[in-house]
C-alpha cells in the first residue's frame, strides 16, 4: 500500500513538473527569441511576463474548438491525445536524481526503471508519429495532409540515426537501462568518449522534434501550419504541449547519455539535472533563432547520406574498440 502511495506521488510529481516546465518553456522560448531579435517579448502579464503561460492556457481553454465539417470527427479528436500521451510517458524512464530518503524509506528518483529503457523511448516516439499522421489525415484538407506526410517521412528517417547515435553509449555502459547508464558515468561523462555520437544526437534531436532548421512539416510559407492547420483550442494546445514535452524528454535523454545525467559537484542532483535539461532547451531556442530552414530534399539527403553512415561508423568503431580492449 505504501509502495503504491510512493509510486502515485512520484508519477504526479514527475508529470506535474514536466507539464509546468513545458508551459514555462513556451514563455522562455518567446523571451529568448525576442532577445535575439532585440525585442522585449511577452513582459506584460505578471513580473517579467511570468504569468503568460497561465494566461495562454486559460485563453486556449475558453476558445471554441472548430472541427472541419469534412473531418473524421473521432480520429480528429483522438489524434492530439495520441501525440501527447507517448510524449509524456517517455519521460517515465529518465532518472532525474539519485535516491532520497523520504519518511524513512529509500525512494529512487525515477518513475520506472525499465531494463530496456532506451528502446521504450523509441517505441513511444514511434507511436507518437501516429498522432501527427492521423491528425493530418482526419482534417481532410490538403495542407495538413502534405505537412503530415512530410512529418512522418522525416521522423521515420531521423529516428534511425537517433537510435544509432545512442548505441555507442549503450555499448560502453553495457546496459539499456538509463539508471545504469548514469551509474556508468561516475568518473567522467560519456561526451568525452562519444563526441561524434553526441553531435549526431544533437542534430537528430532537432529533426525528431520538428524544430528549426528541420521544421519543414510546419513551414509557414508553403504549408500554412502543417499537420495542425485545422486544429484550434485545447486540441491545438495538446499538440503544442506534446512538442514541448518531447523536446524536454530528448533534452533529458541527451543529458543522461552524454553529460552524466543528474551527476555534478556541489549542487543537489535534481538541480544539476534541471540545469542540464534547461541548457539543452536553450540550445533548441538558440538554433531556432539563428538558422534558416532546410529544403526538403536537402533534409532527406542529409539524413540518409550523411547522418546514418556516420552513426553506423560510430557504432562499428565503438564496438571495435570495446572488443579490442576486451
Amino acid at each position: 500500500m505504501a509502495d503504491l502511495a510512493v509510486m502515485l506521488v512520484k508519477v504526479v510529481a514527475a508529470f506535474g513538473a514536466l507539464l509546468l516546465l513545458a508551459a514555462y518553456m513556451t514563455w522562455a522560448e518567446r523571451r529568448v527569441f525576442a532577445l535575439v531579435q532585440v525585442r522585449y517579448g511577452p513582459n506584460r502579464v505578471g513580473p517579467a511576463g511570468l504569468l503568460q503561460p497561465i494566461a495562454d492556457g486559460i485563453k486556449l481553454m475558453f476558445k471554441e474548438s472548430v472541427i472541419p465539417a469534412q473531418a473524421d470527427k473521432l480520429i480528429f479528436v483522438l489524434a492530439p491525445l495520441v501525440s501527447l500521451v507517448p510524449a509524456m510517458a517517455a519521460f517515465a524512464v529518465i532518472p532525474f536524481g539519485s535516491s532520497v530518503t523520504l519518511f524513512g524509506r529509500q525512494v529512487d528518483l525515477i518513475v520506472a526503471d525499465v531494463n530496456v529503457g532506451v528502446l521504450y523511448i523509441f517505441a513511444l516516439s514511434g507511436i507518437g508519429v501516429y498522432g501527427i499522421v492521423l491528425g493530418a489525415w482526419a482534417s481532410n484538407s490538403k495542407y495538413p495532409l502534405l505537412g503530415g506526410l512530410r512529418s512522418a517521412a522525416q521522423l521515420i528517417s531521423y529516428e534511425l540515426s537517433l537510435g544509432m547515435s545512442l548505441l555507442g553509449v549503450v555499448l560502453i555502459a553495457g546496459s539499456l537501462s538509463l539508471k545504469d547508464i548514469v551509474a556508468a558515468q561516475a568518473h567522467y561523462p560519456f561526451i568525452l568518449l562519444q563526441p561524434l555520437g553526441f553531435l549526431l544526437f544533437l542534430v537528430c534531436m532537432l529533426a525528431e522534434t520538428n524544430r528549426s532548421p528541420f521544421d519543414l512539416p510546419e513551414a509557414e510559407s508553403e504549408l500554412t501550419g502543417g499537420f495542425h492547420t485545422e486544429y484550434s483550442s485545447m486540441h491545438f494546445a495538446m499538440y503544442f504541449l506534446a512538442e514541448y514535452c518531447s523536446m524536454i524528454t530528448l533534452s533529458a535523454v541527451a543529458a543522461t547519455f552524454f553529460l552524466g545525467g543528474w551527476r555534478g559537484p556541489l549542487l543537489p542532483p535534481v538541480v544539476w539535472f534541471l540545469v542540464k535539461v534547461v541548457a539543452f532547451m536553450f540550445f533548441f531556442m538558440w538554433v531556432r533563432a539563428t538558422t534558416p530552414r532546410l529544403r526538403y530534399d536537402q533534409l532527406m539527403g542529409f539524413g540518409w547520406k550523411v547522418l546514418l553512415p556516420l552513426a553506423i561508423l560510430n557504432v562499428v568503431a565503438t564496438a571495435g574498440v570495446m572488443a579490442f580492449l576486451g
Binding site: N115, L119, A123, G126, L134
Partner: peptide, 25 residues
C-alpha cells in the same frame, strides 16, 4: 519478455503499420 514487447511495438506497431497507414491514406 520486455525486449520482445518493445520490439513488437517498434517494428510492428511503429514501422510496419505506419507503412500500411501511408498506403491507405
Amino acid at each position: 519478455a520486455q525486449f520482445v514487447a518493445v520490439v513488437q511495438v517498434i517494428v510492428y506497431a511503429g514501422a510496419i503499420m505506419m507503412l500500411f497507414l501511408f498506403v491507405v491514406m
